[in-house]
Design a protein around this nucleic acid. Structure first.
Ligand code: FES
Ligand code: FES
Lengths: 162, 162
DNA sequence: CATTTGCGGATATATATTGTCCTTAATAAA
DNA sequence: TTTATTAAGGACAATATATATCCGCAAATG
């Protein structure tokens, strides 16, 4: 089990969009070039963000993407679920029902204990993702990324932002 | 991203093995029949448990599997990692290095902030799995599963255990 | 010796991920 | 108005992973 590479792409793209001045847009082309990614396929990830209402778009030259909410109101879980979907990482196929010792019309009242525990772990994962906002990420990045690279990157971005 | 169905299989098989009297073995055939699973493919999951030293095996008629440790000394994470592998669910392909604004010989001192946060969530998932033992599972199951089905199941198992 | 068992390799099939190509409609700039 | 640029999305192909089956081997049992 491994998350799609699009998750890494989407998170990094959102981090860039979070640093964009209000009202400006950044295109798929610029985001793809900045991260060295296949433009057409990155576009699918950005469409997922759009369908999840995390970003807004506009068409035409100088068009592209911008965040639909403030960075403090978007968290990691929002972005991960936009790309990966909201379904749980453990799926129960109810193999307990195949037990030959069970009456064949027996109906379970609760989900299986095994599944419940797996889902608790899934919840812990989601809660951690939910606890970190895009604003938190930008704070951490601006500490970790060397100041000159950070500065150059946003100059590069602003030259291409519509 | 979704866990393999073998995870569900392995957890249920371990729960059965945990209820086996000391010294007895249960075969792949019996475990497959009990859970309604393809014997040959379930065998692969059990081999994973064996390679992880969670179970011991013996050959020949009356052979099969038993736990290598007491149920209180085996947790969910042991079993999940035996089947799914120990690698993290988020992999960083270091797309930050493709940033055209970076000196091309620049070397990062830390893992990317994005990856660190994703790995924290992964840790939270693993910690939850680690906190539940097979003994805990058996306790929960014996409360949830109706007493007569529970009893019949272990009679069925004991008839087939070598 | 005959049977049963776990183990591992080889192989086949189904599904998911990754990636490309193309058309369409909207938008902005020339 | 014309032209260029953009996001959206459908169709498709390539690749990787998950699921599943089959076979031969060596060990254990009786
Ligand atoms: S039957 Fe699906 S987890 Fe128990
Ligand atoms: S470069 Fe991989 S997560 Fe940031």
């Amino acid at each position: 089990m491994i998350l799609k590479s699009q998750v890494e792409w989407a998170l990094h793209c959102c981090a860039i969009l979070a640093g964009l001045p209000p009202g400006r847009y950044l295109s798929t082309k610029a985001l793809a070039e900045l991260h060295g990614l296949p433009k057409e396929y990155l576009s699918k990830a950005l469409q997922s963000l759009s369908q999840a209402s995390l970003v807004e778009t506009t068409l035409g030259p100088s068009g592209g993407y911008r965040l639909a909410r403030s960075p403090s109101e978007i968290n990691f879980l929002d972005i991960v679920e936009a790309v990966e979907g909201k379904s749980r990482t453990f799926t129960c196929s109810n193999i307990r029902a195949n037990n030959p010792c069970r009456p064949k019309d027996f109906c379970d009242s609760k989900p299986c204990s095994v599944a419940r525990i797996m889902w608790q772990a899934d919840e812990a994962w989601r809660n951690t993702l939910k606890s970190v906002s895009l604003a938190d990420l930008v704070d951490t990045l601006s500490e970790d990324v060397p100041a000159d690279i950070w500065k150059n990157t946003f100059e590069w971005v602003l030259q291409r932002a519509g």
